[in-house]
Design a protein around this nucleic acid. Structure first.
Lengths: 166, 166
DNA sequence: CCTGAAATCCACTATTG
DNA sequence: CAATAGTGGATTTCAGG
């Protein structure tokens, strides 16, 4: 459990810019953060090596690529022993349609996001999760009706108080 | 409401590769899909223009950049008139800590994901959402304990049946 | 729609401050 | 740690099929 790496204003700016435009050229990035290209590239490589940048990805409009039903599942397990949690997580890792999974506090244990071709597929997937000795007690599901705010990144710098003024 | 664009095997491969590695060079991409660099680039530009590729982003480990508490909020509105939904969604769009929001079916109306510096911030944000004439009835929240499977993209091609064999 | 060539631009590595 | 300059390689455009 080590602390936070020491990041100066330039590092944070680089992270913010790359999160917004992952394909910006190093030259343009260097200009935005007021650094020479070589110094900028060295910082980017350092941020990658430190694991603060985990990867670069194209964001796709999957619903326009093929028919899709996205479902959020609230999964409750029968047991909360660490080994059982890991077994369940390992199973999720093997299912490509489970695109995201979070262990959460509250009345259920995991919130999972599933991108399936139709509702039947989700039904079969839920059945599998309930049957295959994964210790799943129950699953409540919510179908995504509208992607009101697609994920585009988290704020790199924290505000102290929320506000609707920005 | 138009149908799906006609995408051949190469287009789907390009989308899959770029989703996995958004910073791959056009040359390497062209090689992977067995096309010349110029033909490959033309396809990528077409996919971008058609809106199937919405953007490119670095994926950051925000929890290692700064202290973070991620919360899922289940938001119930008082009214479900389209105008009220849009008002609420517009408010969410203005709050950078709300990193994702989905309108869903079921006993609540929106599932929102919030990245806040601490729990107090989330409390204040929830209070604001409940007070400011946005028509919010109630919010149930779940704190993220462990990011069991971070989002890295959705499968570009659909399977017919789920299975744990891959 | 593709290929292939030509020109521009960029990434990356010394080298130096 | 950062700036500068140079080279190899990539991006991008365009002519041609």
């Amino acid at each position: 459990m080590d602390g936070y790496p020491s990041l100066d204003r330039i590092d944070l700016k680089i992270l913010a810019v790359l999160q917004e435009d992952g394909r910006i050229t190093n030259q343009a990035l260097a200009e935005k953060v007021a650094l020479s290209p070589s110094a900028c590239l060295a910082r980017v490589r350092r941020l990658e090596a430190e694991g603060l940048i985990l990867g670069y990805h194209a964001r796709l409009d999957i619903e326009r690529i093929r028919p899709t039903v996205t479902v959020y599942g609230e999964v409750t397990l029968k047991s909360h022993r660490p080994a059982d949690l890991l077994t369940f997580e390992a199973a999720l890792a093997e299912i490509p349609e489970v695109v995201e999974a979070a262990q959460v506090s509250g009345p259920f244990d995991y919130l999972i996001k599933v991108v399936s071709p139709d509702v039947r597929f989700w039904g079969e997937l839920a059945d599998h999760l309930l049957q295959e000795g994964l210790g799943v007690d129950k699953i409540a599901s919510h179908i995504l009706m509208k992607d009101a705010k697609p994920f585009r990144g988290a704020p790199v710098t924290a505000r102290r108080h929320p506000g609707f003024d920005g």
